[in-house]
């Protein structure tokens, strides 16, 4: 098609909103996989009544410890980023006053970063 070569001259693609949308598509699929695996492992294989402090402690300190810690933090980060980006969209949809819009998005960012920092610290500093 004749006009398609022209496109390379322009910077139109990319940008924060584009990647935020693309991340939602990817993280949706990733979350489905890791959350379903988490559910099957914890609730079906180990079973709810057997989930104790020791089960989690042994998993994190065992030979596969680094893998499980990374897995759990990945689940935390993917779920929080996906969820908080959704909340950011809700703020953009419903809060139209510029000041309140920025305030709520800043509040979301602070909560998001705090929860990730606390979660990651807990997972990686755990010694048993």
């Amino acid at each position: 098609m004749s006009n398609r070569t022209e496109l390379s001259k322009f910077k139109f693609q990319g940008g924060f909103e584009t990647w935020a949308w693309f991340f939602m598509r990817i993280s949706g699929v990733v979350l489905l996989l890791i959350a379903v695996f988490h559910l099957l492992l914890m609730h079906v294989y180990i079973q709810v009544e057997n989930i104790t402090y020791d089960v989690v402690a042994n998993r994190w300190t065992g030979a596969w410890g680094p893998f499980w810690r990374t897995y759990d933090v990945a689940l935390l980060i993917f779920a929080l980023t996906h969820g908080f980006n959704g909340l950011r969209w809700v703020v953009d949809d419903y809060i139209h006053r510029a000041g309140w819009n920025v305030f709520f998005k800043a509040l979301l960012l602070v909560i998001y970063l705090t929860v990730i920092a606390m979660g990651a610290y807990t997972v990686f500093s755990f010694t048993g």
Partner: peptide, 17 residues
Amino acid sequence: DSRDKGTAERLQILNDR
């Protein structure tokens, strides 16, 4: 539309929250 050359311009307009 392959005849139109405003593609990048319009995409830029739509690339907004």
